[in-house]
């Protein structure tokens, strides 16, 4: 197990290098640079624009900019002349500097992370909590009317694009007035009691959670159903029934544990999209998370913000897979990584 973890972490290094190089190249291909937007302002003088390009290193070729950025990137930093021992370590990772906000990219990510993680988690929980029982029931009562309807709804949910659902949700909110039209907190949020604030956020989270969760419900449910069906037909089920085990025990103690394996892998993937999965929904529903930040960074050619978000996604994907593999080994004693 240790060997697996070490190997995976080592693979991560070349992978991050290649990915970041690709992102740098792609960002450099876009016309103009982050300073271009000031070019048409009559009261900005040429000397200042040149100075800005110099400060940001935009007057250099893209690979020089890349190496310059690479030199800054650190998982943490050490300040030898800080007053106390603990202050010498700054555990904020350095992802470079944002041209647009003129501040550390990491600070920007930290600002937006809580909202995005919260939304991703609630929608994941929603999806799994609904999808697993539905999938199991659909498998047990295969070809019943319940199975048919749930299958049809699942196909429908999978085929509707997320952004369209988000738009529908906004129209629903506007027409009924039951829900806020996008956003994360209401205007009076800062003046509410802690309980009031909690409810305020819950109220805002409900629609985006449903929008983001529906696609997940359909996907997870279909996997669950298919696996459950595979396992129901296997010989150990016949054995268990022949032994005289109760039907509930057969289904939940034996079939369920075998059928859940592929879902553990799926959970690993879901983990990797915690930061990036809500991008479209965030943009459409004006939700102040990382997706919105990255989208604006792309428009503004704020290269290092884009870079950081891509790298975070890569890291999350690797960690997600690793966690899934570990969980798999724990659930299924047949799997070993020696």
């Amino acid at each position: 197990m240790k060997a697996l973890i070490i190997k995976r972490l080592l693979i991560l290094i070349p992978m991050l290098l290649v990915v970041s190089l690709m992102v740098s190249l792609l960002m450099s291909l876009a016309p103009g640079d982050p300073v271009s937007q000031f070019e048409m302002m009559p009261d900005v003088d040429a000397e200042y624009l040149q100075r800005l390009r110099q400060e940001f290193g935009l007057d250099q070729p893209w690979y020089m900019q890349y190496f310059h950025w690479l030199g800054q990137v650190l998982p943490f930093s050490y300040h030898p002349d800080a007053a106390s021992f603990w202050q010498r370590f700054d555990f904020r990772p350095n992802f470079g500097f944002s041209y647009y906000y003129r501040t550390e990219v990491w600070d920007l990510l930290v600002q937006r992370m809580p909202a995005t993680i919260l939304l991703s988690l609630t929608s994941l929980v929603l999806a799994w909590v609904i999808a697993i029982p539905l999938g199991v029931l659909a498998a047990i009562y295969k070809d019943s009317i319940f199975d048919r309807i749930s299958q049809m709804l699942a196909y429908a949910a999978l085929s509707i694009p997320e952004f369209f659902l988000a738009l529908l949700a906004l129209v629903f909110a506007a027409k009924t007035g039951w829900f806020p039209i996008g956003g994360f907190t209401s205007v009076e949020h800062d003046f509410l009691s802690p309980w009031g604030r909690f409810l305020d956020i819950a109220h805002h989270l409900l629609l985006p959670t449903i929008v983001l969760g529906i696609g997940g419900v359909a996907g997870v449910m279909r996997i669950m159903r298919a696996n459950f069906l595979d396992n129901i037909r296997s010989e150990y089920v016949v054995t268990a029934r022949a032994k005289g085990l109760a039907e509930g025990a057969v289904m939940f103690r034996h079939v369920f544990r075998n059928a859940i394996n592929p879902l553990i892998t799926a959970a690993g993937f879901a983990f990797s999209s915690i930061l990036s999965g809500a991008l479209l929904v965030e943009i459409v529903m004006n939700y102040p998370g990382i997706g919105q930040l990255v989208y604006n960074a792309l428009l503004q050619q704020d290269a290092f913000v884009v870079q950081a978000s891509v790298l975070m996604s890569v890291i999350m994907l690797m960690i997600g897979n690793l966690l899934a593999d570990i969980a798999l080994a724990m659930n299924d004693p047949r799997i070993r990584y020696d």
């Binding site: 039951w178 209401s186 009076e188 003046f191 509410l192 009031g196 409810l199 305020d200 819950a202 109220h203 409900l206």
Partner: peptide
């Protein structure tokens, strides 16, 4: 949730 969301 709905009841808590009168105009504050």
């Amino acid at each position: 949730v709905l009841s808590a969301c009168g105009p504050g």
